[in-house]
Amino acid sequence: MNLFGGTIGNLESGLKYSATKQKTIAQNIANVDTPKYKAKDVSFAKMLKDAEIDTMSAHRTDQRHYEFKQPQSSDGVYSYTNLRYRQNGNGVDMDAEQAKMAENTIYYNALIDRINGKLNSLKTVIKGGQ
């Protein structure tokens, strides 16, 4: 029986995405005055695709069967290539980064709230409904 699979596993993946996004936003803000720095962002779709591939497994019953190879998973972070906001080539828009940070904080808090609800439900079941 997989007690913490399913919903809690998906919420954990969401928290990984949120943490990666927070680090990326913080890195962008820290480099707001760095010449030629290109802003970075995180692709949720890429992280989701990597998570689906990482969970895939197969049992080979014969040596002639193809072996499943899992590609190297990436963190989903990418740089904007043709983005310039300033004369020095810096691509960080402070207002946009602060808005992204606020949005990510709300997303993170919602995930934490949902995980707390799931764990409280398990706690109630373990206590026998008391």
Rank of each mutant, 00 (worst) to 15 (best):
H65Y: 02
L48M: 14
S74G: 13
A102H: 09
V77M: 03
G9Y: 10
D33A: 06
T61M: 11
K49C: 11
Q72K: 14
S73C: 08
M56R: 06
S18G: 13
I25T: 07
A26M: 13
S74R: 12
L122A: 03
L111K: 05
Q63C: 06
Y66N: 11
G117L: 06
L111Y: 01
D113N: 14
K123W: 08
Y37F: 12
N31G: 11
S43Y: 13
L122T: 00
N104G: 01
G117C: 01
I53P: 07
D75N: 15
V77P: 04
N109A: 05
Y85L: 07
N82L: 07
T81L: 13
E52I: 02
S73F: 11
E67H: 07
A99C: 05
T105S: 04
S73Y: 06
I53F: 02
E12S: 06
T34H: 04
Y78R: 11
R84C: 10
A58R: 15
T105N: 10
M47W: 09
E103F: 03
V42H: 07
L122Y: 00
Y66C: 08
Y37C: 15
R60H: 01
Q72I: 13
G14A: 06
V125N: 04
A58G: 06
A30R: 05
A26C: 14
A99L: 03
E12V: 12
V77T: 03
G117T: 06
L15T: 04
T34M: 13
G14R: 09
K21I: 11
Y37K: 06
T124V: 10
K36V: 15
G14Q: 06
Y107V: 05
Y66K: 10
V42F: 02
N10A: 07
N88Q: 11
D62R: 09
G76V: 01
D50A: 15
Q22Y: 14
R60D: 04
E52V: 10
N109D: 10
N2V: 04
A96P: 00
D93I: 04
R84L: 15
A45H: 10
Y37S: 10
Q70I: 10
T61K: 13
T55P: 08
S43F: 08
S13C: 09
V77H: 01
A99Y: 06
T7D: 05
K36S: 15
N104F: 03
V77Y: 04
D50E: 15
V92M: 00
D62H: 15
A30G: 11
Y85F: 15
I115N: 04
T34I: 01
Y66A: 14
P71K: 15
